[in-house]
Structure formats: structure tokens, C-alpha cells
């Protein structure tokens, strides 16, 4: 019985994640079309809504090409690794109070580790294809991913400094008073730039720059292994948008509802009222709205900015973002302990 329940729970997380990946692709095409005064996909289903499913079905029925010079096992293993570790990050996401798969104490570390391992898939896929475009693309992509991961993890360090826990739910719940966007606004900007680069999105999509490297590390990949890269890319976009909204916007907590509550008279003995307020103030819809807005900003950025050069990409990371982050890593612990507002880690007392 418990096995069935756990299977249902796992499917309840992963199937909506995959469906949302499909709808993010269709929304990206629609939004970009509107920004470029086109119509976009509008034939399949109502308003083109089923386009993504049709594309996925088409790609699954396409012929797979396994190049003769490639290392076949690694060639198929690379995309699989990328997909697995892009989707595993959903394990520790709290969607609402009590609605998660794993409430691990080191949830943030788990997400960092999983997103770091996904780099190996790209490296394997690009190297094993034995094509010079794939090789150069995977080199570029790996250098970019590891450099920007540094920025993400050091911003995460400061979030953990202010919340005092590596648990994702504790980070969300400690933003009941004020979301961390206010004290950490510069770092949110840095983190957002880093998360655009970490997901290989335009304007940082140097790994698949069509004009120079045909399509980067996935030049030789076709059919279902291409679907794996595609799914992994969009799943990691959604995941990193969820992470952004958890770290800086309070996750499933609604700041607006909390500020309305503080104006209301909470001393009344109305149980239904309290239940209603608690449902509205921490419901998964809040997380969904925040994440959708961030995904929209990702698409908006892609439609707005031209691609930058690779040396510019690396110098933005190492000479602009990293010094700023290091400066804040030095400043914020000093301010926190100067004002004696260190969060107390109860498990250490």
C-alpha cells in the first residue's frame, strides 16, 4: 500500500513537471512570436496549445542516428545523465506546507550537487560524439556552467547566512516577515544573471551558437536523445526559476496576503477565517505565479538581448559578477554579526 502511495506521489511531482516543460516551450514560442510581431504556432489544438506534444511525438518517431566514429555508450549515456539530474532537483522543492517529496536537512546542497552533476552529461555527450562542433560546444558549455555555478553557490551562501539553515522549507518559512529580495537585491540581480547563464539561455547560449557551432554539444544528437537535452534544458529553467522564487520571493508564501493580515483583526475567534487565511497565504498558487513571472522574464531576456562573445561571457563572470559577490560575502557576515542578528541554528545549541 505504501509502495503504491509513494509511486503516486512520485508521479504527481514528475508528470506535472514534464507537462509544464511542454507548456513552457509553447509559451516561449508564443511570447517570442508576439515580441517579433508574428503569430507563432497556432495550428495544432486550440490556439496552438498542443504544439509541444506534437513536436515531442514527432521527435520520438524520428530515426536515431548513431555516428560511426562516436563512442556509442557514452553518446547515449550523456543525454540520459543530463535528463536524470535535471529532473532530480524537483525532489526537494516544497510546493506548499507539507507538500514535498523529501524534506531533507541539506536540501539546498542536494540541488547544488544535482545541478553540478548535470554538467558531466554535457561534457560526455560533446566529447563522445567525436565531432569538432560538439567538442567545442561541450568545452564552452562546461566552462560556462562551472564558472556561473560558482556565482550561484556564493549567492546561496549569503541566503543561508541570513536564514541559518540548509533546509529549503526553513528558507521559505523564514521569509514570512520580509522576502529576502529586500535585503539582498543586488545579489538577486547577480543570481538571476547567473541562473540565465547556468541554463544556457540567450544571451548566454554560446554553447549552441548557430552561427559558429552548428548546435553546440548536441550537433550529432537526434531523435529521443535530442528530446532528453531539450527536456533537461527546459526542466532546469523551471527548476531554477522555482529556486529563484524560493530564495528571494518567499516561495509559496504570499507577501501581499501577510501584509493584509497584519492590518486585520486576528483576535476574532473565527476558525473558518483563520483556515481560509492560512490556505490563501501559503498555497502552491503563489509559487506558481512567481515562477511563471520569472520564466516570462527568461523569455523576455531571450527576445531582447543579442548574444555576447565567449570571452565577454567569461569576463562578465570572473571580472564583474565574482568580485561583487566576493565583496558581499565579506560585507554581509560583518553587518550581520555587527548588528547581532545572526540566525540561531537550534541543532548546534
Amino acid at each position: 500500500m505504501s509502495n503504491i502511495i509513494s509511486i503516486i506521489q512520485g508521479l504527481l511531482v514528475i508528470v506535472p513537471a514534464l507537462i509544464s516543460v511542454a507548456f513552457v516551450t509553447i509559451s516561449e514560442r508564443k511570447v517570442m512570436a508576439s515580441m517579433q510581431r508574428r503569430v507563432g504556432p497556432n495550428a495544432v489544438g486550440y490556439y496552438g496549445l498542443l504544439q509541444a506534444f506534437a513536436d515531442a511525438l514527432k521527435l520520438l518517431l524520428k530515426e536515431y542516428v548513431a555516428p560511426t566514429q562516436a563512442n556509442i555508450i557514452l553518446f547515449f549515456l550523456g543525454p540520459v545523465i543530463t535528463l536524470i539530474f535535471a529532473l532530480l532537483g524537483y525532489l526537494v522543492i516544497p510546493y506548499a506546507p507539507g507538500t514535498f517529496i523529501s524534506d531533507h536537512r541539506l536540501g539546498i546542497f542536494f540541488m547544488l550537487a544535482v545541478s553540478a552533476i548535470a554538467t558531466y552529461g554535457i561534457l560526455l555527450a560533446g566529447w563522445s560524439a567525436n565531432s569538432k562542433y560538439a567538442f567545442l560546444g561541450s568545452l564552452r558549455s562546461t566552462a560556462q556552467l562551472i564558472s556561473y555555478e560558482l556565482i550561484l553557490s556564493s549567492v546561496l551562501l549569503l541566503v543561508i547566512l541570513l536564514t541559518g539553515s540548509l533546509n529549503v522549507i526553513t528558507i521559505v518559512e523564514s521569509q514570512k516577515a520580509v522576502s529576502l529580495l529586500l535585503p539582498l537585491l543586488p545579489l538577486f540581480i547577480v543570481f538571476f544573471i547567473g541562473s540565465i547563464a547556468e541554463t544556457n539561455r540567450a544571451p548566454f547560449d554560446l554553447a549552441e551558437a548557430e552561427s559558429e557551432l552548428v548546435s553546440g554539444f548536441m550537433t550529432e544528437h537526434s531523435a529521443s536523445i535530442f528530446v532528453f537535452f531539450f527536456l533537461a534544458e527546459y526542466a532546469s529553467i523551471i527548476l531554477i526559476c522555482i529556486l529563484n522564487s524560493i530564495l528571494f520571493f518567499g516561495g509559496y508564501l504570499s507577501i501581499i496576503v501577510f501584509s493584509i493580515i497584519s492590518l486585520l483583526d486576528l483576535s476574532r475567534e473565527d476558525t473558518l477565517f483563520h483556515v481560509l487565511i492560512s490556505i490563501i497565504s501559503s498555497s502552491p498558487i503563489n509559487l506558481a505565479v512567481k515562477t511563471s513571472i520569472l520564466v516570462f522574464v527568461f523569455i523576455w531576456v531571450r527576445a531582447s538581448f543579442p548574444r555576447i562573445r565567449f570571452d565577454q561571457l567569461m569576463s562578465v563572470c570572473w571580472l564583474v559578477l565574482l568580485p561583487i559577490t566576493i565583496a558581499y560575502v565579506i560585507l554581509l557576515p560583518c553587518v550581520v554579526s555587527g548588528l547581532l542578528i545572526n540566525p540561531v541554528n537550534i541543532s548546534l545549541l
Binding site: S6, Q9, L60, A223
Partner: peptide, 23 residues
């Protein structure tokens, strides 16, 4: 089998199913 363990196994299963459908 806890949900976490199942989730860790579900991802490779999903990948293998998609790969098998294609092949």
C-alpha cells in the same frame, strides 16, 4: 520503498522508456 527512493529510480526508468520507444 520510500517516495525519495522511488523518485531516484523513476528518472532512469523514464529515460529508458523514452529511449526504448524511440528505438
Amino acid at each position: 520503498m520510500t517516495t525519495t527512493t522511488f523518485f531516484l529510480f523513476l528518472m532512469p526508468i523514464l529515460a529508458i522508456i523514452l529511449l526504448a520507444v524511440n528505438l
